[in-house]
Design a binder for these strands. Structure first.
Lengths: 211, 211
DNA sequence: CCTTTGTGTAATCAGTGATTACATTGCTAT
DNA sequence: ATAGCAATGTAATCACTGATTACACAAAGG
Protein backbone atom coordinates (compact mmCIF):
# COMPACT_ATOMS: atom_id res chain seq x y z
CA UNK A 1 0.00 0.00 0.00
CA UNK A 2 1.85 2.97 -1.28
CA UNK A 3 0.97 6.49 -0.13
CA UNK A 4 0.06 7.75 -3.55
CA UNK A 5 -3.66 7.22 -3.21
CA UNK A 6 -4.22 10.77 -1.94
CA UNK A 7 -2.23 12.83 -4.37
CA UNK A 8 -1.49 10.15 -6.95
CA UNK A 9 1.46 12.07 -8.34
CA UNK A 10 2.86 10.14 -11.24
CA UNK A 11 5.66 11.83 -13.14
CA UNK A 12 3.79 13.63 -15.86
CA UNK A 13 0.14 12.96 -15.33
CA UNK A 14 -1.11 14.16 -12.03
CA UNK A 15 -3.74 11.51 -11.51
CA UNK A 16 -6.55 13.41 -9.81
CA UNK A 17 -5.87 17.03 -10.60
CA UNK A 18 -9.53 17.96 -10.54
CA UNK A 19 -9.97 17.27 -6.86
CA UNK A 20 -6.62 18.69 -5.91
CA UNK A 21 -7.42 21.91 -7.77
CA UNK A 22 -10.71 22.21 -5.95
CA UNK A 23 -9.08 21.79 -2.57
CA UNK A 24 -6.36 24.26 -3.45
CA UNK A 25 -8.94 26.77 -4.65
CA UNK A 26 -10.94 26.50 -1.45
CA UNK A 27 -7.84 26.82 0.70
CA UNK A 28 -6.75 29.87 -1.23
CA UNK A 29 -10.16 31.50 -1.02
CA UNK A 30 -10.23 30.94 2.70
CA UNK A 31 -6.78 32.50 3.04
CA UNK A 32 -6.97 35.53 0.81
CA UNK A 33 -10.63 36.02 -0.01
CA UNK A 34 -12.59 35.38 -3.18
CA UNK A 35 -11.36 38.41 -5.04
CA UNK A 36 -7.72 37.47 -4.59
CA UNK A 37 -8.22 34.05 -6.12
CA UNK A 38 -6.33 33.33 -9.31
CA UNK A 39 -6.19 30.10 -11.22
CA UNK A 40 -2.46 30.60 -11.66
CA UNK A 41 -1.98 30.49 -7.92
CA UNK A 42 -4.23 27.46 -7.69
CA UNK A 43 -2.10 25.80 -10.34
CA UNK A 44 1.14 26.68 -8.58
CA UNK A 45 -0.14 25.28 -5.28
CA UNK A 46 -1.12 22.09 -7.04
CA UNK A 47 2.39 21.85 -8.48
CA UNK A 48 1.23 22.17 -12.03
CA UNK A 49 1.63 24.55 -14.94
CA UNK A 50 -0.56 27.68 -15.23
CA UNK A 51 -2.55 26.30 -18.13
CA UNK A 52 -3.25 22.89 -16.67
CA UNK A 53 -6.39 23.78 -14.71
CA UNK A 54 -8.10 24.74 -17.95
CA UNK A 55 -8.06 21.08 -18.98
CA UNK A 56 -10.42 20.38 -16.09
CA UNK A 57 -12.34 23.64 -15.79
CA UNK A 58 -13.12 25.58 -18.92
CA UNK A 59 -12.82 28.89 -17.09
CA UNK A 60 -12.24 30.47 -13.75
CA UNK A 61 -16.00 30.72 -13.42
CA UNK A 62 -16.33 26.99 -13.99
CA UNK A 63 -13.81 26.29 -11.24
CA UNK A 64 -15.68 28.51 -8.83
CA UNK A 65 -18.95 26.92 -9.84
CA UNK A 66 -17.52 23.57 -8.85
CA UNK A 67 -16.52 25.07 -5.51
CA UNK A 68 -20.06 26.37 -5.15
CA UNK A 69 -21.53 22.94 -5.81
CA UNK A 70 -19.51 21.45 -3.01
CA UNK A 71 -20.42 24.33 -0.73
CA UNK A 72 -24.11 24.10 -1.52
CA UNK A 73 -24.05 20.45 -0.53
CA UNK A 74 -22.60 21.35 2.84
CA UNK A 75 -25.09 24.17 3.35
CA UNK A 76 -28.13 22.01 2.76
CA UNK A 77 -26.58 19.31 4.92
CA UNK A 78 -26.18 21.81 7.74
CA UNK A 79 -29.75 23.00 7.33
CA UNK A 80 -31.12 19.46 7.30
CA UNK A 81 -29.07 18.52 10.35
CA UNK A 82 -30.53 21.43 12.29
CA UNK A 83 -34.02 20.49 11.12
CA UNK A 84 -33.77 16.92 12.30
CA UNK A 85 -32.55 18.20 15.66
CA UNK A 86 -35.75 20.22 15.95
CA UNK A 87 -38.02 17.40 14.88
CA UNK A 88 -41.08 18.00 12.75
CA UNK A 89 -43.77 18.30 15.35
CA UNK A 90 -43.96 22.08 15.13
CA UNK A 91 -43.73 23.69 11.68
CA UNK A 92 -42.75 27.04 13.16
CA UNK A 93 -39.87 25.46 15.03
CA UNK A 94 -38.85 23.67 11.85
CA UNK A 95 -38.70 27.01 10.08
CA UNK A 96 -36.59 28.41 12.87
CA UNK A 97 -34.28 25.43 12.49
CA UNK A 98 -33.83 26.19 8.81
CA UNK A 99 -32.95 29.77 9.55
CA UNK A 100 -30.60 28.76 12.32
CA UNK A 101 -28.82 26.17 10.22
CA UNK A 102 -28.50 28.57 7.31
CA UNK A 103 -27.16 31.41 9.41
CA UNK A 104 -24.81 29.25 11.43
CA UNK A 105 -23.33 27.82 8.27
CA UNK A 106 -22.98 31.21 6.61
CA UNK A 107 -21.27 32.48 9.72
CA UNK A 108 -18.78 29.62 9.80
CA UNK A 109 -18.15 29.60 6.08
CA UNK A 110 -18.26 33.21 4.96
CA UNK A 111 -16.24 32.78 1.80
CA UNK A 112 -18.12 29.68 0.72
CA UNK A 113 -21.35 31.52 1.31
CA UNK A 114 -20.08 34.41 -0.74
CA UNK A 115 -19.32 32.10 -3.64
CA UNK A 116 -22.72 30.44 -3.48
CA UNK A 117 -24.71 33.64 -3.48
CA UNK A 118 -22.72 35.43 -6.13
CA UNK A 119 -23.96 35.34 -9.68
CA UNK A 120 -20.90 36.96 -11.23
CA UNK A 121 -18.31 34.61 -9.78
CA UNK A 122 -20.24 31.47 -10.65
CA UNK A 123 -22.68 30.34 -13.29
CA UNK A 124 -25.52 29.27 -11.07
CA UNK A 125 -28.03 28.20 -13.67
CA UNK A 126 -25.47 26.16 -15.56
CA UNK A 127 -25.29 23.75 -12.65
CA UNK A 128 -28.28 21.49 -12.14
CA UNK A 129 -26.95 20.57 -8.72
CA UNK A 130 -27.01 24.16 -7.57
CA UNK A 131 -30.45 24.81 -8.95
CA UNK A 132 -31.94 21.60 -7.57
CA UNK A 133 -30.51 21.79 -4.09
CA UNK A 134 -31.62 25.38 -3.81
CA UNK A 135 -35.07 24.44 -5.01
CA UNK A 136 -35.26 21.54 -2.57
CA UNK A 137 -34.84 23.80 0.43
CA UNK A 138 -37.35 26.23 -0.99
CA UNK A 139 -39.94 23.46 -1.35
CA UNK A 140 -39.38 22.47 2.26
CA UNK A 141 -40.11 26.05 3.29
CA UNK A 142 -43.22 26.22 1.13
CA UNK A 143 -44.58 23.04 2.67
CA UNK A 144 -43.78 24.07 6.23
CA UNK A 145 -45.42 27.44 5.83
CA UNK A 146 -48.49 25.92 4.21
CA UNK A 147 -48.73 23.44 7.06
CA UNK A 148 -48.25 26.19 9.63
CA UNK A 149 -51.18 28.02 8.16
CA UNK A 150 -53.39 24.95 8.10
CA UNK A 151 -52.64 24.37 11.76
CA UNK A 152 -53.40 27.98 12.62
CA UNK A 153 -49.86 28.65 13.73
CA UNK A 154 -49.44 31.60 11.40
CA UNK A 155 -50.29 35.13 12.29
CA UNK A 156 -53.53 36.08 10.52
CA UNK A 157 -53.24 38.19 7.43
CA UNK A 158 -50.05 36.58 6.23
CA UNK A 159 -50.03 35.28 2.67
CA UNK A 160 -48.01 32.03 2.62
CA UNK A 161 -46.33 32.66 -0.72
CA UNK A 162 -45.25 36.11 0.43
CA UNK A 163 -43.88 34.70 3.65
CA UNK A 164 -41.70 32.21 1.83
CA UNK A 165 -40.04 35.01 -0.04
CA UNK A 166 -39.85 37.35 2.92
CA UNK A 167 -38.38 34.73 5.22
CA UNK A 168 -35.67 33.97 2.76
CA UNK A 169 -35.06 37.68 2.20
CA UNK A 170 -34.73 38.24 5.91
CA UNK A 171 -32.29 35.40 6.49
CA UNK A 172 -30.33 36.30 3.40
CA UNK A 173 -30.21 39.90 4.53
CA UNK A 174 -28.81 39.01 7.94
CA UNK A 175 -26.25 36.67 6.42
CA UNK A 176 -25.14 39.17 3.81
CA UNK A 177 -24.90 42.00 6.29
CA UNK A 178 -22.44 39.80 8.10
CA UNK A 179 -20.56 38.73 4.98
CA UNK A 180 -20.44 42.26 3.63
CA UNK A 181 -19.24 43.61 6.94
CA UNK A 182 -22.23 45.81 7.75
CA UNK A 183 -22.59 44.76 11.37
CA UNK A 184 -20.20 47.40 12.60
CA UNK A 185 -22.04 50.25 10.88
CA UNK A 186 -25.29 49.07 12.36
CA UNK A 187 -23.88 48.97 15.83
CA UNK A 188 -24.18 45.27 16.37
CA UNK A 189 -21.84 44.97 19.29
CA UNK A 190 -22.78 41.49 20.44
CA UNK A 191 -20.95 38.52 18.97
CA UNK A 192 -22.40 37.65 15.61
CA UNK A 193 -23.90 34.28 16.59
CA UNK A 194 -25.95 35.90 19.35
CA UNK A 195 -27.02 38.77 17.16
CA UNK A 196 -28.20 36.38 14.47
CA UNK A 197 -30.00 34.15 16.94
CA UNK A 198 -31.94 37.02 18.43
CA UNK A 199 -32.74 38.44 15.01
CA UNK A 200 -34.09 35.04 14.08
CA UNK A 201 -36.01 35.01 17.32
CA UNK A 202 -37.66 38.30 16.56
CA UNK A 203 -38.69 37.19 13.10
CA UNK A 204 -40.20 33.94 14.36
CA UNK A 205 -42.06 35.92 16.99
CA UNK A 206 -43.43 38.15 14.26
CA UNK A 207 -44.83 35.35 12.14
CA UNK A 208 -46.08 33.22 15.01
CA UNK A 209 -49.80 33.49 15.76
CA UNK A 210 -49.26 33.53 19.50
CA UNK A 211 -46.30 33.16 21.82
CA UNK B 1 -19.28 82.76 -23.78
CA UNK B 2 -17.37 79.81 -25.08
CA UNK B 3 -18.71 76.31 -24.63
CA UNK B 4 -15.79 75.08 -22.59
CA UNK B 5 -17.43 75.46 -19.21
CA UNK B 6 -18.66 71.88 -19.20
CA UNK B 7 -15.64 69.91 -20.21
CA UNK B 8 -13.01 72.66 -20.01
CA UNK B 9 -10.68 70.85 -22.37
CA UNK B 10 -7.57 72.88 -22.76
CA UNK B 11 -4.76 71.29 -24.75
CA UNK B 12 -2.76 69.59 -22.09
CA UNK B 13 -4.49 70.11 -18.81
CA UNK B 14 -7.95 68.76 -18.77
CA UNK B 15 -9.44 71.28 -16.39
CA UNK B 16 -11.86 69.19 -14.39
CA UNK B 17 -10.71 65.66 -14.89
CA UNK B 18 -11.94 64.56 -11.49
CA UNK B 19 -15.58 65.08 -12.34
CA UNK B 20 -15.27 63.77 -15.86
CA UNK B 21 -13.62 60.60 -14.56
CA UNK B 22 -16.44 60.09 -12.10
CA UNK B 23 -19.07 60.44 -14.78
CA UNK B 24 -17.19 58.14 -17.11
CA UNK B 25 -16.82 55.57 -14.35
CA UNK B 26 -20.51 55.64 -13.57
CA UNK B 27 -21.47 55.37 -17.22
CA UNK B 28 -19.11 52.46 -17.67
CA UNK B 29 -20.40 50.65 -14.60
CA UNK B 30 -23.94 51.08 -15.81
CA UNK B 31 -22.99 49.67 -19.19
CA UNK B 32 -20.80 46.72 -18.36
CA UNK B 33 -21.25 46.10 -14.65
CA UNK B 34 -19.00 46.77 -11.70
CA UNK B 35 -16.67 43.87 -12.32
CA UNK B 36 -15.91 44.97 -15.86
CA UNK B 37 -14.84 48.42 -14.75
CA UNK B 38 -11.21 49.31 -15.39
CA UNK B 39 -9.54 52.63 -14.77
CA UNK B 40 -7.83 52.30 -18.13
CA UNK B 41 -11.18 52.29 -19.87
CA UNK B 42 -12.32 55.20 -17.75
CA UNK B 43 -9.19 57.05 -18.78
CA UNK B 44 -9.69 56.25 -22.44
CA UNK B 45 -13.27 57.46 -22.35
CA UNK B 46 -12.15 60.66 -20.73
CA UNK B 47 -9.61 61.11 -23.51
CA UNK B 48 -6.66 60.89 -21.21
CA UNK B 49 -3.67 58.65 -20.64
CA UNK B 50 -3.97 55.44 -18.58
CA UNK B 51 -2.00 56.85 -15.66
CA UNK B 52 -3.81 60.17 -15.42
CA UNK B 53 -6.67 59.04 -13.16
CA UNK B 54 -4.19 58.12 -10.47
CA UNK B 55 -3.39 61.81 -10.03
CA UNK B 56 -6.93 62.30 -8.82
CA UNK B 57 -7.70 58.95 -7.21
CA UNK B 58 -4.95 57.12 -5.45
CA UNK B 59 -6.37 53.76 -6.46
CA UNK B 60 -9.25 52.09 -8.22
CA UNK B 61 -10.82 51.64 -4.81
CA UNK B 62 -10.59 55.38 -4.19
CA UNK B 63 -12.33 56.07 -7.49
CA UNK B 64 -15.13 53.71 -6.64
CA UNK B 65 -15.37 55.17 -3.17
CA UNK B 66 -16.00 58.54 -4.75
CA UNK B 67 -18.69 56.98 -6.89
CA UNK B 68 -20.17 55.50 -3.73
CA UNK B 69 -20.22 58.89 -2.01
CA UNK B 70 -22.24 60.38 -4.82
CA UNK B 71 -24.56 57.39 -4.85
CA UNK B 72 -25.07 57.48 -1.10
CA UNK B 73 -26.16 61.08 -1.38
CA UNK B 74 -28.78 60.15 -3.91
CA UNK B 75 -29.96 57.20 -1.86
CA UNK B 76 -30.56 59.22 1.27
CA UNK B 77 -32.19 61.92 -0.84
CA UNK B 78 -34.59 59.35 -2.27
CA UNK B 79 -35.35 58.01 1.19
CA UNK B 80 -35.96 61.47 2.61
CA UNK B 81 -38.18 62.40 -0.33
CA UNK B 82 -40.36 59.37 0.27
CA UNK B 83 -40.48 60.18 3.99
CA UNK B 84 -41.67 63.70 3.46
CA UNK B 85 -44.34 62.39 1.13
CA UNK B 86 -45.63 60.18 3.95
CA UNK B 87 -45.52 62.93 6.56
CA UNK B 88 -44.52 62.25 10.14
CA UNK B 89 -47.87 61.72 11.77
CA UNK B 90 -47.56 57.95 11.86
CA UNK B 91 -44.18 56.46 12.79
CA UNK B 92 -45.06 53.13 11.24
CA UNK B 93 -45.91 54.78 7.96
CA UNK B 94 -42.68 56.73 8.15
CA UNK B 95 -40.81 53.46 8.51
CA UNK B 96 -42.62 52.08 5.51
CA UNK B 97 -41.63 55.17 3.59
CA UNK B 98 -37.98 54.56 4.41
CA UNK B 99 -38.21 51.00 3.21
CA UNK B 100 -40.04 52.04 0.08
CA UNK B 101 -37.58 54.78 -0.79
CA UNK B 102 -34.63 52.49 -0.16
CA UNK B 103 -36.01 49.64 -2.24
CA UNK B 104 -37.20 51.84 -5.08
CA UNK B 105 -33.79 53.45 -5.32
CA UNK B 106 -31.97 50.14 -5.20
CA UNK B 107 -34.22 48.85 -7.92
CA UNK B 108 -33.59 51.83 -10.19
CA UNK B 109 -29.88 52.00 -9.50
CA UNK B 110 -28.71 48.43 -9.12
CA UNK B 111 -25.07 49.05 -9.91
CA UNK B 112 -24.84 52.09 -7.69
CA UNK B 113 -26.41 50.10 -4.91
CA UNK B 114 -23.90 47.32 -5.48
CA UNK B 115 -21.04 49.77 -5.13
CA UNK B 116 -22.44 51.27 -1.95
CA UNK B 117 -22.97 48.00 -0.17
CA UNK B 118 -19.72 46.38 -1.18
CA UNK B 119 -16.81 46.52 1.20
CA UNK B 120 -14.21 45.11 -1.17
CA UNK B 121 -14.81 47.54 -4.03
CA UNK B 122 -14.83 50.61 -1.83
CA UNK B 123 -13.24 51.71 1.42
CA UNK B 124 -16.36 52.57 3.34
CA UNK B 125 -14.83 53.60 6.64
CA UNK B 126 -12.27 55.83 4.95
CA UNK B 127 -15.07 58.13 3.82
CA UNK B 128 -16.67 60.26 6.55
CA UNK B 129 -19.47 61.10 4.17
CA UNK B 130 -20.41 57.47 3.69
CA UNK B 131 -20.24 56.72 7.38
CA UNK B 132 -22.20 59.79 8.40
CA UNK B 133 -24.97 59.56 5.85
CA UNK B 134 -25.45 55.91 6.68
CA UNK B 135 -25.53 56.72 10.37
CA UNK B 136 -28.03 59.53 9.81
CA UNK B 137 -30.59 57.18 8.31
CA UNK B 138 -29.99 54.69 11.07
CA UNK B 139 -30.67 57.34 13.71
CA UNK B 140 -33.93 58.23 12.01
CA UNK B 141 -34.96 54.59 12.20
CA UNK B 142 -33.99 54.33 15.84
CA UNK B 143 -36.05 57.38 16.70
CA UNK B 144 -39.06 56.29 14.70
CA UNK B 145 -39.09 52.85 16.25
CA UNK B 146 -38.70 54.27 19.75
CA UNK B 147 -41.57 56.62 19.08
CA UNK B 148 -43.69 53.82 17.66
CA UNK B 149 -43.22 51.88 20.85
CA UNK B 150 -44.08 54.86 23.06
CA UNK B 151 -47.27 55.34 21.12
CA UNK B 152 -48.17 51.68 21.41
CA UNK B 153 -47.97 51.14 17.68
CA UNK B 154 -45.47 48.30 17.99
CA UNK B 155 -46.42 44.69 18.34
CA UNK B 156 -45.83 43.66 21.98
CA UNK B 157 -42.71 41.66 22.72
CA UNK B 158 -40.59 43.48 20.17
CA UNK B 159 -37.31 44.91 21.42
CA UNK B 160 -36.74 48.23 19.62
CA UNK B 161 -33.01 47.82 19.18
CA UNK B 162 -33.55 44.38 17.65
CA UNK B 163 -36.17 45.74 15.31
CA UNK B 164 -33.83 48.41 13.97
CA UNK B 165 -31.36 45.76 12.96
CA UNK B 166 -33.96 43.33 11.68
CA UNK B 167 -35.74 45.95 9.61
CA UNK B 168 -32.56 46.91 7.90
CA UNK B 169 -31.62 43.25 7.42
CA UNK B 170 -34.97 42.57 5.81
CA UNK B 171 -34.81 45.52 3.43
CA UNK B 172 -31.21 44.82 2.62
CA UNK B 173 -32.05 41.19 2.00
CA UNK B 174 -34.80 42.04 -0.46
CA UNK B 175 -32.60 44.54 -2.25
CA UNK B 176 -29.66 42.19 -2.47
CA UNK B 177 -31.75 39.30 -3.66
CA UNK B 178 -32.72 41.56 -6.51
CA UNK B 179 -29.19 42.82 -7.16
CA UNK B 180 -27.70 39.36 -6.93
CA UNK B 181 -30.33 37.96 -9.25
CA UNK B 182 -31.99 35.58 -6.83
CA UNK B 183 -35.56 36.48 -7.70
CA UNK B 184 -35.77 33.92 -10.45
CA UNK B 185 -34.65 31.05 -8.25
CA UNK B 186 -37.21 32.02 -5.64
CA UNK B 187 -39.99 32.08 -8.16
CA UNK B 188 -40.78 35.74 -7.94
CA UNK B 189 -42.76 36.06 -11.13
CA UNK B 190 -44.34 39.43 -10.53
CA UNK B 191 -42.46 42.53 -11.63
CA UNK B 192 -39.85 43.45 -9.08
CA UNK B 193 -41.45 46.69 -7.89
CA UNK B 194 -44.67 44.90 -6.97
CA UNK B 195 -42.84 42.04 -5.29
CA UNK B 196 -40.85 44.48 -3.20
CA UNK B 197 -43.88 46.52 -2.29
CA UNK B 198 -45.81 43.51 -1.07
CA UNK B 199 -42.80 42.17 0.82
CA UNK B 200 -42.56 45.54 2.53
CA UNK B 201 -46.26 45.36 3.21
CA UNK B 202 -45.93 42.02 4.90
CA UNK B 203 -43.11 43.21 7.10
CA UNK B 204 -44.97 46.32 8.20
CA UNK B 205 -47.99 44.17 8.97
CA UNK B 206 -45.79 41.97 11.12
CA UNK B 207 -44.41 44.76 13.27
CA UNK B 208 -47.62 46.73 13.52
CA UNK B 209 -49.61 46.25 16.73
CA UNK B 210 -52.91 46.13 14.92
CA UNK B 211 -54.10 46.63 11.36
C1' DC C 1 3.30 -2.52 -31.89
C1' DC C 2 1.06 1.42 -33.06
C1' DT C 3 -2.61 4.56 -32.94
C1' DT C 4 -5.87 7.18 -30.30
C1' DT C 5 -7.33 9.77 -26.51
C1' DG C 6 -6.47 12.29 -22.43
C1' DT C 7 -3.54 15.16 -19.84
C1' DG C 8 0.24 18.47 -18.75
C1' DT C 9 3.78 22.00 -20.61
C1' DA C 10 5.67 26.11 -22.80
C1' DA C 11 4.98 30.13 -25.12
C1' DT C 12 2.19 33.70 -25.91
C1' DC C 13 -1.74 37.18 -26.06
C1' DA C 14 -4.42 41.04 -24.55
C1' DG C 15 -5.76 43.39 -20.59
C1' DT C 16 -5.29 44.88 -15.67
C1' DG C 17 -3.72 48.16 -11.41
C1' DA C 18 0.03 50.54 -10.19
C1' DT C 19 4.59 53.15 -10.25
C1' DT C 20 8.16 55.85 -12.11
C1' DA C 21 10.62 59.45 -14.65
C1' DC C 22 9.61 63.05 -17.42
C1' DA C 23 6.92 66.83 -20.00
C1' DT C 24 3.89 70.55 -19.83
C1' DT C 25 1.07 73.93 -17.89
C1' DG C 26 -0.65 77.77 -15.13
C1' DC C 27 -0.48 80.29 -10.71
C1' DT C 28 2.05 83.24 -7.54
C1' DA C 29 5.46 86.11 -5.69
C1' DT C 30 8.92 89.03 -6.61
C1' DA D 1 7.12 90.58 -16.78
C1' DT D 2 9.20 86.72 -15.38
C1' DA D 3 11.32 83.12 -12.47
C1' DG D 4 10.09 79.44 -9.83
C1' DC D 5 6.97 76.11 -8.13
C1' DA D 6 3.28 73.01 -7.57
C1' DA D 7 -0.19 70.67 -10.08
C1' DT D 8 -1.38 67.80 -13.69
C1' DG D 9 -0.86 64.96 -17.76
C1' DT D 10 2.21 61.50 -20.61
C1' DA D 11 5.12 57.54 -21.72
C1' DA D 12 7.30 53.58 -20.38
C1' DT D 13 7.34 49.94 -17.60
C1' DC D 14 6.30 46.23 -13.86
C1' DA D 15 4.14 42.25 -12.15
C1' DC D 16 0.10 39.99 -12.61
C1' DT D 17 -4.21 38.13 -14.53
C1' DG D 18 -7.47 34.75 -17.58
C1' DA D 19 -7.22 32.53 -21.62
C1' DT D 20 -5.50 30.16 -26.02
C1' DT D 21 -2.40 27.66 -28.86
C1' DA D 22 0.96 24.31 -30.48
C1' DC D 23 3.43 20.79 -28.73
C1' DA D 24 5.21 16.81 -25.50
C1' DC D 25 4.24 12.89 -23.00
C1' DA D 26 1.76 8.98 -21.23
C1' DA D 27 -1.52 5.31 -20.71
C1' DA D 28 -5.18 2.26 -22.90
C1' DG D 29 -6.99 -0.73 -26.52
C1' DG D 30 -7.11 -2.76 -30.92
Amino acid sequence: MTSESQTARAGYHHGNLTEVLLEAAIALIEEKGVDALSVREVAKRSGVSPGAPFRHFSSKTALLTAVAEQAMGRLTAAVRAEMSKAGDADPIEALRAIGRGYLAWALSNPTHFQVISSRSLIDFHASPRLVEENEAIRIVMVDLIARAQREGRLRPGIVPADLVFSSRAFIYGVARMWIDGHFKEWHVERPAPEAMESALDLFIKMIDAKP
